[in-house]
Computed example of a mutant assay.
Amino acid sequence: MTAATITTPPAESGRARRRSVLWLVGPLVLIVAIPVADHFLPPDIHLAHLLIVAPAVTSAVAGPRLTALIGGLAVAALVIAGAERGSLATESVLVELASLAALCVLLALFSLLRNRHELELLRVRSVSDATQRVVLRPLPDRAGPVSIASEYRSAEADTRIGGDLFAVARVCDSTRLVIGDVRGKGLASISDTAIMLGAFRAAAHRQAPLPELVAYLEDAVRWGLAEFSESSRSEADTGERFVTAVVVDIPDNEPVIHVISCGHPPPLLLRNATATATALSVPDPALPLGLGGLSASSYVQTTFPFVHGDQLLLYTDGVSETRDAQGTFYPLAERAAAWTDQAPEAVVEKITADLKAYAAGPLDDDMALIVVQRDRTPAVTTAR
């Protein structure tokens, strides 16, 4: 689809046409009823001025052609009403005719301009949606021996990308994931999100060890943020821009996961056998990306057991820091522990629905959520 091409789903288009037809019933009834009523009413009661309601209602729900048609019928109805009373040539009726005709023209023009504005908005939205899907690609349902489910909500309405991010990549013998949170939220943080995701996709497919991957991300993010700040002439906040992230490597043939945390909330290990949700806190988390400037040797991966049936819950602070009406943070680990027997898709759906019900109002921060489950027993049981 190009920016100039807009498609509307057939069902939605059909519903819109039916709504327009239903809305036109009232104006048409009004146009017919007023001349008939004028014929039977006393001479001192005149309803013709109500005919303007018909094109006014039509212009609110229909296009310029239907508005012009209803306006023309309204003018014709006024002529008929005036002829029935024998007052068509009077000054009062002529003024009413001229006023009604002028208002109908203005309403048709208004409808035309509104339609053009809506089409332009639809074009912009289609381009925005396409851009967002390129930057924040949907995660696959499967990657190697693991199944994946995810959810993303932006803090800004009608926006599918913001300051939270996630991505997955396959190497020859493992699956790598990243989840992160750019400082800021909504549309203002999209450039930093694109920098981070571009760096991960460029490097994650390499066979480099996890510490080297994170060191590459640090260099790429720090360079990208500095270059963007220089080009946008906003160097004042360069040192305040960063990305918190967790990078995970899940080997295909070992019952473990390797984790490096860069100032991000720890993942949760969901274990069905014990119905528990355990935070995988690393002993020495690194600084957020864009602040450290560290070498690969400075990043230390921590290894945790991850056996068949285990699930890994990755999230951003838009989930864990959601508050209820009393200001209490959402108890993510406690709630997630109740759903350890569910499939990843069900866990994501339940947490998302529960989070919306828990919040005191609309979510005011970007939110990203990933659940990964190991579906296949590793062939090798020794951790490297």
Rank of each mutant, 00 (worst) to 15 (best):
A4S: 10
I6D: 06
P9S: 15
P10N: 06
E12N: 06
G14V: 04
A16M: 09
S20W: 05
L24V: 05
V29L: 13
V29F: 10
L30V: 04
V32S: 08
P42E: 11
P43C: 03
L47V: 15
I52R: 14
A56K: 01
A56L: 07
S59A: 15
S59E: 07
A60N: 07
P64L: 15
L69D: 04
I70K: 12
V79Q: 12
G82E: 06
E84Q: 13
G86N: 05
S92K: 12
V93G: 02
V95L: 14
A101R: 13
V105P: 01
V105K: 06
A108K: 01
A108G: 02
F110P: 07
S111E: 13
L113H: 11
R114H: 05
N115V: 01
L119V: 15
R123Y: 02
V124W: 04
S126T: 01
V127Q: 13
D129K: 09
D129T: 05
T131Q: 08
R133N: 06
L139R: 01
D141F: 02
D141P: 02
V146E: 10
S147M: 09
E151R: 13
Y152S: 07
A155S: 10
A155W: 00
E156G: 04
D164I: 01
A167R: 05
V168P: 00
R170P: 02
C172F: 14
S174I: 08
V178I: 10
V178G: 05
I179M: 09
G180K: 09
R183Q: 14
R183S: 15
G184E: 14
S189W: 11
S189I: 13
A194C: 15
A194F: 03
I195S: 04
M196K: 04
G198R: 08
F200I: 00
F200V: 00
A203N: 09
A203I: 00
P209R: 07
L210A: 11
L213C: 05
L213Y: 01
A215M: 06
Y216Q: 04
L217V: 01
R222E: 13
F228C: 12
S229M: 03
S231P: 04
S232N: 10
R233M: 08
E235H: 14
G239N: 11
E240G: 14
F242S: 06
T244K: 00
T244C: 08
A245Y: 06
N253R: 08
N253Y: 06
N253T: 03
H258M: 04
P266D: 00
P266W: 01
P266H: 00
R271F: 00
A275N: 03
T276C: 10
S281M: 10
P283M: 15
P283R: 15
P283Y: 14
L289W: 06
L294W: 03
A296P: 14
S297C: 11
S298K: 07
V300Y: 02
Q301R: 05
T303P: 12
F304M: 11
P305L: 00
F306Y: 08
V307I: 01
H308D: 06
Y315S: 05
T316F: 01
D317R: 09
T322N: 08
G327W: 01
E334N: 03
W339S: 02
W339Q: 06
Q342K: 12
A346M: 05
A346N: 02
V347Q: 04
V348G: 04
K350W: 13
T352M: 07
K356R: 03
Y358L: 05
A360H: 02
M367I: 09
I370E: 03
V372Q: 07
V372W: 07
P378G: 10
V380N: 12
T381W: 09
T382A: 15
